[in-house]
């Protein structure tokens, strides 16, 4: 018998002897991530209510909008993809979501979160996992987690675009310079995404992690120390930025459908 019941180990039947509520964290993670996946899938396929012309607010799920079918005013970077394939309409979100999705899916923090909560490998520390065999990230498909840095680079491009979107949202009700609640929402979203990306372990490695002599690279060392401070809070940024993206999209949807009004400061 394998694991904690292996031969010569203390003969204890219980899977774990932990008395605290160790199941709470994985359960909460499943609830939040499943809720996000359901909402994001619905929005990605909805293919409408992603742009508010008055104030120029575009949903982060649909930016950059690269399909032929994008509504007017959203095609800032031209078009790359068709609006339909084999007669089925393709939502512009589907052309781009692979990049932010891949970035989060391969993120070192999210890996911990979903390995524990979804795959139960392990569900919590010192709680026996249900699997008979374990090879970690040494075989396909999990060996692909090593591609995290490519999604990180792509994520930086997306951050730049979403920051640009936030600056484009500095519009008043008459179309001139101004600011609305939507501007603040997009600005907060872009800021949180930057914090999430800059606190990433790959970013830390790229900036200075591979150096052996910090003393020969004082600028990179300084950057590395700053990013290390951010890195300490990477898990928090991962969650807050996820909520930020969902909230920004929801806000724009509600304004676009007329459920709420986007308040203009000036």
């Amino acid at each position: 018998m394998a694991g904690v019941h292996a031969e010569h180990r203390a003969h204890i039947q219980e899977r774990t002897l932990r008395t605290d509520r160790w199941w709470l964290q994985p359960a909460a993670t499943v609830f939040v991530l499943v809720s996000f996946i359901i909402y994001a899938t619905f929005r990605a396929f909805e293919n409408k209510h992603y742009f508010v012309e008055k104030g120029e607010l575009i949903s982060p799920f649909y930016s950059p909008c690269l399909s032929d079918a994008c509504v007017e005013g959203t095609q800032l970077f031209g078009t790359l993809g068709p609006s339909s394939l084999w007669g089925f309409a393709i939502s512009p979100a589907l052309l781009i979501l692979i990049f932010p999705l891949g970035f989060r899916l391969t993120c070192y923090y999210y890996r911990k979160a979903y390995y524990r909560s979804f795959w139960q490998s392990p569900p919590a520390c010192a709680v026996a996992e249900p699997h008979k065999k374990y090879t970690g990230e040494t075989k396909q498909p999990l060996i692909l987690q090593n591609g995290h840095r490519w999604f990180f680079y792509a994520g930086l491009v997306f951050n730049a675009i979403l920051t640009y979107d936030a600056f484009l949202a500095f519009h008043g009700p008459d179309g001139g310079f101004g600011m609305s609640v939507g501007t603040l929402v997009l600005l907060a979203n872009a800021t949180l995404l930057w914090l999430y990306s800059l606190s990433c372990h790959t970013c830390r490695h790229t900036v200075g992690g591979r150096l052996r002599h910090f003393s020969k690279h004082p600028l990179r060392y300084k950057l590395w120390t700053r990013i290390s401070i951010l890195n300490h809070h990477h898990a928090n940024f991962a969650w807050v930025s996820l909520f930020g993206v969902a909230f920004a999209d929801l806000y724009i949807r509600l304004v676009s459908t007329g459920a709420i009004t986007n308040y203009f400061f000036f």
């Binding site: 911990k112 390995y115 392990p122 520390c125 090879t135 300490h232």
Partner: peptide, 25 residues
């Protein structure tokens, strides 16, 4: 490559070494 960075080592370290963030990753 077997490590799937679930950070239990860091959680139990009595010396508070950030094993996963500072060494494994």
């Amino acid at each position: 490559g077997m490590c799937n960075i679930t950070k239990c080592c860091t959680e139990v370290c009595p010396e508070h070494i950030r094993i996963t963030d500072n060494a494994i990753i």
